[in-house]
């Protein structure tokens, strides 16, 4: 059947794409000074590109952080073909905290600890298949993380 053959071809092409894509994206992964230098979350998001909200990103962040200097954050992306993950802390002086490339064979999961200056939404942004997705959760901060 012609349609079956098409399906197979599509799968083969997709498979090939998936095999090559991560390597290419790893080489393309450079520090975006524009995104890291942004002083508002909207600026950081704009530097990364247009994105849509997604329920397929699981963000593990505390509801309340007593110490904003050390806030554990973890994100898992269930979006197939995830190649990059970012943490953006809405109210920080520089909202983009970190950017991660996920090479082939590495799970779409990262865990770290960040400073959160004040009560803020913490976002995980995920790039998959050339598109950007976002999920956010609010963390209330009792003691800020960037004070002197």
């Amino acid at each position: 059947m012609n349609s079956k053959r098409r399906g197979f071809l599509k799968m083969a092409v997709a498979g090939l794409g998936l095999a090559i894509l991560p390597l290419r994206l790893l080489a393309d992964f450079v520090r975006s000074e524009k995104a890291f230098g942004a002083t508002a979350a909207e600026g950081a998001f704009a530097a990364l590109g247009p994105m849509q909200d997604s329920a397929d990103i699981i963000l593990e962040t505390p509801d309340i952080a007593e110490n904003g200097a050390v806030v554990p954050v973890a994100a898992t992306s269930n979006i197939p073909g995830t190649t990059r993950m970012y943490f953006v802390i809405e109210k920080n002086p520089n909202p983009l905290a970190a950017a991660f490339a996920i090479p082939e064979g590495t799970e779409a999961f990262v865990q770290t600890r960040v400073k959160v200056a004040q009560t803020s939404t913490i976002y995980a942004v995920v790039e998959a298949g050339g598109k950007l997705y976002r999920a956010g959760r609010e963390t209330k901060v009792t003691l800020g993380g960037c004070g002197g």
Partner: peptide
């Protein structure tokens, strides 16, 4: 591979 800002603890 990752790039970090100063907001990492």
């Amino acid at each position: 591979r990752s790039f970090w800002g100063a907001a990492v603890s």
